[in-house]
Nucleic acid binder design. Sequence first.
DNA 1: CGTCTTTTTGAATACTGTCAATTTAAGTGG
DNA 2: CCACTTAAATTGACAGTATTCAAAAAGACG
Lengths: 256, 256
Amino acid sequence: MQAAAQATVTPLQYVRSAASAVTLPALCSTCHLKDLCLPCGLAGVDVERLDSIMFSRRRVKAGQALYREGDAFSFIYAVRSGTFKSSLTLKDGRDQATGFHMAGEVMGLDGLAHGSHASCATALEDAEVCAIPYAGLNQASAGNAALQEAVSRLMSREIVREHGLMMLLGSMNAEQRLAAFLLNISQRMKARGYSATEFHLRMSRADIGSHLGMKLETVSRTFSAFQQQGLLEVDKRHIRIVDAAALARVLDAPAH
Amino acid sequence: MQAAAQATVTPLQYVRSAASAVTLPALCSTCHLKDLCLPCGLAGVDVERLDSIMFSRRRVKAGQALYREGDAFSFIYAVRSGTFKSSLTLKDGRDQATGFHMAGEVMGLDGLAHGSHASCATALEDAEVCAIPYAGLNQASAGNAALQEAVSRLMSREIVREHGLMMLLGSMNAEQRLAAFLLNISQRMKARGYSATEFHLRMSRADIGSHLGMKLETVSRTFSAFQQQGLLEVDKRHIRIVDAAALARVLDAPAH
DNA sequence: CGTCTTTTTGAATACTGTCAATTTAAGTGG
DNA sequence: CCACTTAAATTGACAGTATTCAAAAAGACG
């Protein structure tokens, strides 16, 4: 068994049917993701404060966009289940993935800057999110320093995360990029209670390439190289990390 | 001595002397940078609220670090004068510049994530900053939604800025990277009342390279190429943009 | 069972990096 | 003031990595 939903489950029923928007109430205090998600680090009382905000849950079908570049910003979104890709559209129409998001991770913070989303979020499999009204969040955190700090810390973490990605894009070769990517996924899977050594990637080679700044052919070749070196076992999107230590050592290499 | 330092100023007196820290009071409401800086977009009343925070001005000599990776986070810094480089240290000891900061720009927001700075800020020339105690800022914004939003927006802008850089690093070739960099500097110079077409770069070729994910030789070659194509006039760090439109068109090129 | 998408692999090209030498500017010290 | 050192920038020749173009294989889908 692995990761999130689908793929494992009855593959055929990716109904393209009715859209998303269902307004089920959702409470942070009883959510099993609370230690990973927005409430992370908050005391019980403060988490209850979050409950006062009217969240709604929203279902997003595989391939559908949760929001697009330019959409008015009024919500931030926490992933409940499924996986998302955040991406920017380049001048020539291609797009670049700025990140992949798993359960408990928060998306959409870039929208605050100019009041409209600067990136696009697409579900890579059937997914569900909490839509958190930003205005409500602001209001709730106005009188609560801990909550306000939690939101700020969330944004700061996003900045730090992007630092890491800039480092990857600016200074690593193809093997290092892929190794860093896999180790990052591995760690996040583990934090969610899944196996750190065996998992199913939710994104295509092209998505990975657009995220890591390389072509899909290069991604594929690098997977093959890792397999040949005995670091991985790769079967399409199924990955088994055979030698995690060696994979980590790829990052220490003299570089470029 | 090393790297940066002096160069601009009386070279020999890079006194290792008494450090920076001078505590001159500084007020946002009377600052000539207020439309570029933290108070940007705030109404007069709200700006006065900022005055209540005890800022201190701090001088930083060329080549000195304002803060380093791992330093405890307690201030964010607004540049009053001079130019800074933010950078991350790579495993092999080299460093990658995550940004350059000019008057009115705010640095250090990455420190909030884990309570210590994730990057290092170095002055590229003698400089002066406002050191804004984060705790004080938080307190001042607790009762003031507009101020709180201004801080959040600042962080969100940083996220968006880094998006742009990721796009650059992930999808542009050397000419596009340098063109994007120069146009960005040009625009920021203009916003500060300087010429948009003629300016002096504060950073070395190596710094530019580490920022754009290319080697210093490639930076130099690309400058030469632009000069030969009639887009620029380059004399070491003095740049004159001869054909801004053509420089912008470099970015539209089919890509890689 | 045929179509379409995704992935893999090969061969050739192109771009950027590496190594090395030179130039220029500025600082150092006799 | 001039030779000496050092750092930054430029340029050339060559090497290497990743891209491009192309084709084939493997599933997924209807």
